[in-house]
Design a binder for these strands. Sequence first.
DNA 1: TTTGGATTGTAGCATGTGCTACATACCATC
DNA 2: GATGGTATGTAGCACATGCTACAATCCAAA
Lengths: 180, 180
Amino acid sequence: MADQPTADRRQTEEARMADHVLAHGLPVATLRPLAAAAGTSDRMLIYRYGSKEALVARLAEILADRLTVLLDAAPAPATDVPEAFAADMAARLTHAAVAPYRAVWLELVAIAARGNPAAEAAVARILTHFAGWINQHLPPGTPFPDATAARILAMIEGAVILSTAGAKGQTLILHAFNTP
Amino acid sequence: MADQPTADRRQTEEARMADHVLAHGLPVATLRPLAAAAGTSDRMLIYRYGSKEALVARLAEILADRLTVLLDAAPAPATDVPEAFAADMAARLTHAAVAPYRAVWLELVAIAARGNPAAEAAVARILTHFAGWINQHLPPGTPFPDATAARILAMIEGAVILSTAGAKGQTLILHAFNTP
DNA sequence: TTTGGATTGTAGCATGTGCTACATACCATC
DNA sequence: GATGGTATGTAGCACATGCTACAATCCAAA
């Protein structure tokens, strides 16, 4: 109990640093700006986390948690058709309001693609959680729910990539999700 | 004609720098390592390209060209079923042999997601080209070819993201593309 | 009150960053 | 041969990076 206030402060500091990463990107998340965002010093960040790498891993974990919490709080699409389900989710995730989360998500994916184990684990964790969420919210009685969820997940992630291509990407998304 | 040898050398230098980016990633593509890879000096790179930003944009363009060339040289999947078409392409693009291209592609996408106009244009260009390629190689008589191509493209790009999640990602890909 | 660990500030180091100033060398044209 | 633009080497600047040495402060336990 003695370290409760310290733990509280640590939590708000981490939240502020996570906000900073969200706003400015993982690649430019360096010690001094992060420390400034948290209201402390680079000296203290190294003292607490041991290294920048460990700190960034922690922040990635926090952002992953936020994503899953956001997801769990989201209502399921009100449809019985898997295609419409995917279209609804894609529309939500490609909305401008969640652009920062999309950006940091893609940054994490890019780091994972270079072979970083921590990033790879975080990506796997998020994707697994997402697939589970889709599975649970699928219309009851959907055949092959695992495969259907995976397929919807792939289409949604594809839409996330397409959405980075500006106007042309929007056209592609429109086409992809409005196939008669 | 007088500057032909210079142009040649410039081309091989650019190719070597592009190789370096492919091997080590866009985020760590800094002047001195790029110069070393090209066999010249940071001094000369700035002299020729004006700024690091312009150089990286040029290298991104070169890599985008390589991607489209690779794509154009690829044989179309030998199938009449759009689902199998997508599965075949996804299997090719998630193969370990093209991992460096996947990585640099996702790095480019991540930069575009942060709002970089050059990256956004490059992503749009590649996606458009890819959609066109799919469209042209679709089984003849496919209804709504534009929409079908866009949908296949989304699924393939989704598979690229899933493939960064290690073993778990492979499972998801297997599920997504083997839906009965 | 003393002790000893946890915490924090100050100052800095070694290296990497993009980029520049200055002085050459080169090389086609006059 | 003189000239003037193009190309290139040498050296460095100002700043950012991750991290550390050292000293001071705090605060609970003895």
